[in-house]
Computed example of a mutant assay.
Amino acid sequence: MKRTLIDTIEYDYPTFHLSMDCFWAEVTAGHLELKEAEAAKWLTKDQLDSVAWLPADVTLIEKIRRNMEN
């Protein structure tokens, strides 16, 4: 399986520091079972702004949006 890094996010929240490696993924079979997410949904490029992203996610979302435009 090829793992392609989107970015590593470093963000200081008031009570902790977040270091998050984010990768592109592809579902090829079966179904997804979420282990850590409180809520999840599939979004199109036009729906990306419909979510109240956490501060650490904003930079990542812009990179995802740019990639979806290519």
Score class of each variant (00 low, 15 high):
residue 21 D to Y: 07
residue 43 L to K: 01
residue 13 Y to A: 01
residue 24 W to S: 06
residue 42 W to E: 14
residue 18 L to E: 08
residue 66 R to K: 14
residue 62 E to N: 14
residue 10 E to C: 09
residue 47 Q to R: 09
residue 33 E to D: 13
residue 57 D to R: 00
residue 20 M to R: 08
residue 57 D to T: 04
residue 28 T to F: 05
residue 32 L to E: 13
residue 63 K to A: 11
residue 57 D to V: 01
residue 18 L to T: 06
residue 23 F to W: 15
residue 60 L to S: 04
residue 56 A to I: 00
residue 15 T to K: 08
residue 56 A to N: 10
residue 12 D to C: 04
residue 54 L to S: 09
residue 31 H to Q: 12
residue 62 E to D: 15
residue 31 H to A: 10
residue 36 E to R: 12
residue 3 R to I: 09
residue 67 N to V: 12
residue 49 D to G: 15
residue 56 A to C: 10
residue 50 S to V: 05
residue 25 A to E: 10
residue 40 A to I: 03
residue 42 W to K: 09
residue 38 E to S: 07
residue 52 A to K: 07
residue 23 F to T: 05
residue 49 D to A: 13
residue 49 D to F: 00
residue 48 L to N: 05
residue 62 E to K: 12
residue 2 K to L: 08
residue 57 D to P: 02
residue 4 T to S: 13
residue 62 E to Y: 05
residue 17 H to R: 08
residue 49 D to I: 05
residue 38 E to A: 11
residue 53 W to A: 00
residue 17 H to W: 02
residue 29 A to C: 07
residue 14 P to G: 07
residue 25 A to W: 11
residue 1 M to C: 11
residue 36 E to P: 01
residue 66 R to V: 10
residue 6 I to A: 04
residue 20 M to L: 13
residue 27 V to P: 03
residue 27 V to A: 11
residue 19 S to T: 11
residue 52 A to S: 14
residue 28 T to H: 13
residue 23 F to N: 10
residue 38 E to H: 14
residue 2 K to I: 11
residue 3 R to Y: 12
residue 47 Q to N: 09
residue 41 K to S: 09
residue 53 W to I: 04
residue 12 D to R: 01
residue 44 T to N: 05
residue 18 L to W: 00
residue 27 V to L: 15
residue 23 F to V: 08
